[in-house]
């Protein structure tokens, strides 16, 4: 019985299938809101209100011809999309969806999440580097610069949450918020803002979509990918979008916890999770809509001049808050 339930948890809910479907839903919400901001319609014809359009795109890409450049480093080039998906799906499991803890939960899983984000950047670098073509090379170079700029504020803002709740375990942070109020109402508000900016960069979305800036370096590090591999990369990036916004909801908005009668928790918590995550996604999409892309040197200067001092200030504030 235990085996069946944990298999169900791992593969169906809140496991792989749930997250993959959620990633398609997120792409749809993102595209639809972005289109509405620009007075366009957005996806429309596939499924009700175009809900199935991301899935249709995925299937279309899978059917397309899959090319590997002649001079690429084939082993790395071919394995990166798979590794990206595997990494994202694994790290998703620490997210609490239906209760205080996720499918897997252990002391230090916050650090695991941070490590996964960094690993994702390194995979991007490998993807660009193994393509052996000028645009992906520039894209990979830019991705690493982006990592240099935004990893530290990201880690420090997460550290603020850990210090506030006194734990490096996701479930502990969630339960601390359930008893002490959400992290966003307190000294973590600044941390929340920094976190949102940093994940916007981590997700490579406008204004920080520098590694795959279409007008400058075509598709950046993804230029040489096509067919199945591109489909997997797109899925991994959507999963990353889900993961980042869910992490923001977990760390700052109290995770899936909320007011619910005891018998309804099984349904109410996933609904709360969805609502909070989509709320974060909406903020991210609005940021995407109202800015122009910054240049890489401006971006690094912005991160080191403003974000990193601010995140140190935020950690110091949290420490003082905790001592009082």
């Amino acid at each position: 019985m235990d085996v069946i339930s944990s298999t169900f948890q791992l593969f169906i809910f809140p496991g792989f299938l749930f997250f993959i479907l959620l990633s398609f839903l997120f792409e749809w919400v993102d595209r639809k809101l972005y289109a509405a901001m620009q007075r366009r319609i957005g996806p429309l014809y596939t499924g009700p209100l175009g809900l199935l359009q991301p899935i249709a795109d995925f299937i279309k890409l899978i059917k397309k011809e899959d090319l590997t450049p002649k001079y690429s480093d084939k082993k790395i080039f071919n394995s990166v999309p798979l590794l990206m998906c595997a990494l994202m799906l694994t790290v998703m499991l620490i997210l609490p969806v239906a209760g205080e803890s996720g499918v897997i939960s252990f002391t230090g899983d916050v650090i695991f999440a941070i490590a996964a984000m960094t690993l994702f950047c390194i995979l991007i670098f490998l993807a660009g580097f193994s393509s052996m073509s000028p645009y992906p090379l520039l894209g990979a170079e830019r991705a690493v610069l982006l990592l240099l700029g935004f990893e530290i504020p990201l880690m420090l803002s997460i550290a603020g949450c850990c210090i506030a709740s006194g734990s490096i375990e996701v479930s502990a942070i969630v339960s601390w918020q359930a008893s002490h109020g959400w992290n966003i109402f307190g000294p973590q508000l600044l941390g929340f803002a920094i976190f949102l900016v940093a994940i916007q960069a981590e997700l490579e979305r406008i204004p920080f979509d520098i590694p795959d800036a279409e007008q400058e370096i075509v598709a950046g590090w993804m230029t040489e990918y096509s067919g199945r591999k591109l489909a997997l990369i797109r899925m991994a990036r959507n999963l990353e979008l889900v993961f980042m916004s869910a992490l923001a909801a977990t760390l700052y908005l109290g995770g899936p916890m909320g007011l619910a009668p005891h018998w309804a928790e099984g349904i109410a918590f996933p609904v709360y999770f969805l609502l909070k995550t989509v709320a974060i996604l909406l903020i991210l999409t609005i940021i995407r809509g109202i800015f122009a892309r910054v240049r890489i040197d401006q971006m690094v200067a912005f991160a080191w001049r403003y974000l990193i001092p601010l995140s140190f200030l935020q950690v110091a504030l949290t420490l003082i808050w905790r001592l009082i």
């Binding site: 366009r40 007008q215 800015f291």
Partner: peptide, 16 residues
């Protein structure tokens, strides 16, 4: 020009 600096929302408004 707005599109070239990655400002697609502005681009859509102008072309509208």
């Amino acid at each position: 020009a707005a599109h070239e600096i990655g400002f697609d929302t502005f681009f859509m408004y102008i072309w509208l």
